[in-house]
Simulated scan of single mutants.
Amino acid sequence: MLKSERKQVILEEVNRDQIVSLESLVQILQTSESTVRRDLDELESEHKLRRVHGGAQSLHSLQEEESNQEKSIKNIRSKKLIASRAVSLIQDYEVIFVDAGTTTELMLQFLNNPKITVVTNSIHHATTLVEKNIPTVIIGGLVKRSTDASIGGVALNQIGQLNFDKAFLGMNGVDQDFFTTPDMEEGAIKRAILENAQKTYVLADSSKLGQTSFVKVAPLKRASLITNGSRLDLIAKLKEKTEVIEV
């Protein structure tokens, strides 16, 4: 395979999965590790990707945000494992908050307990929960179309009047210091939920680890992280700052 063809394949893999390991690229390209390293170094110098320990990840802007439809087809297996683990933490008679988002949406497949109350800022989450006969409270406000999240003053006011035993949040970025998200208003909602929950869990697959978005939601110590364990280098560093539950 020509160098130009190898580099194109690498970019396709990185852009599809956000992050790709050196080992998987060696297998896909059927070439040596040293050759793949050189290709990655060249692509980084061309500002087409970013090198990370053990592989590479896609470049993204601080305010970049995909729609729920775009997110829903990515990393499904990992997201289901994370969602299932999150549901296992819920106990009878608890009031929980389930954030809008694609990973939190997958929690609903495993959530069948009518002895809990679920508060959510997602219309679609609420519809599914009501159909499953689970007591449900929906947060109002302006609905952000791309993420199906209620945002704004009305939503903040309602959240401020409630308390949650546990909250389950999605995030776009988990760097070595903060949980982050691209949108200021969604960031404010997530921050308010954190402040009103006795225990908060952030659900983030490995493609979010090491990423930084525009808005700092909270320091890592404010919430536990549930993630899949494919980024062992980053997970070890994150464990120094907060509880990490691997699936």
Rank of each mutant, 00 (worst) to 15 (best):
L108R: 05
L111N: 06
Y93P: 06
L111M: 06
S88E: 15
Q109C: 02
V98S: 00
I96C: 10
S88V: 07
Q109S: 14
S88P: 01
L111D: 04
L111I: 03
T104P: 01
T117S: 08
K115N: 15
V95A: 11
T103M: 04
S88F: 04
I90C: 11
T102I: 01
L89G: 10
D99C: 11
A86Y: 07
F110G: 09
L106Y: 07
E105M: 15
I96F: 07
G101E: 06
D99V: 06
L108E: 02
V95I: 15
L111H: 04
M107C: 14
T102L: 00
T117R: 14
Q109Y: 06
A100V: 01
L106H: 06
A100R: 01
I116Q: 03
L108G: 09
V87D: 12
L108P: 08
S88A: 13
T102S: 15
I116M: 09
E94Y: 05
E94G: 12
N112G: 11
Y93T: 12
L106Q: 12
E94F: 01
I116S: 10
T103D: 10
V98G: 02
Q91S: 14
T117I: 15
D92Y: 04
V98M: 04
E94K: 03
F110Q: 06
S88W: 03
I116G: 07
T104M: 01
T103G: 07
L106K: 14
I116N: 08
F97C: 10
I96M: 10
A86M: 03
I96S: 11
T104K: 00
Q109M: 04
V98W: 00
E94C: 08
D99K: 07
L106D: 09
A100N: 07
D99W: 01
V95P: 00
P114T: 10
L111C: 07
V95R: 14
E105I: 01
A100P: 03
N113P: 02
Q91C: 11
A100W: 00
I90P: 06
Q91F: 06
D99Q: 07
K115T: 05
L108H: 07
V95E: 12
V98Q: 00
I116A: 10
A86N: 08
D99G: 12
M107S: 11
Y93Q: 15
I96V: 15
V98I: 15
D92S: 14
G101I: 03
Q109I: 01
P114Q: 10
I90W: 06
L111R: 02
N112A: 14
L108T: 14
V98L: 10
T117C: 11
Q109G: 08
Q109P: 00
Q91G: 04
T102G: 12
A86W: 00
P114K: 11
A86T: 08
Q109F: 01
T104F: 02
F110K: 03
I96A: 09
F97N: 14
G101V: 02
N113G: 09
V87S: 13
L89A: 12
M107K: 02
T103V: 02
L89Y: 12
N112P: 00
G101F: 03
I90F: 06
T104V: 00
K115Q: 14
D99T: 11
M107F: 05
D99S: 13
K115M: 09
F110H: 13
V95M: 12
F110S: 10
I90G: 07
T117N: 01
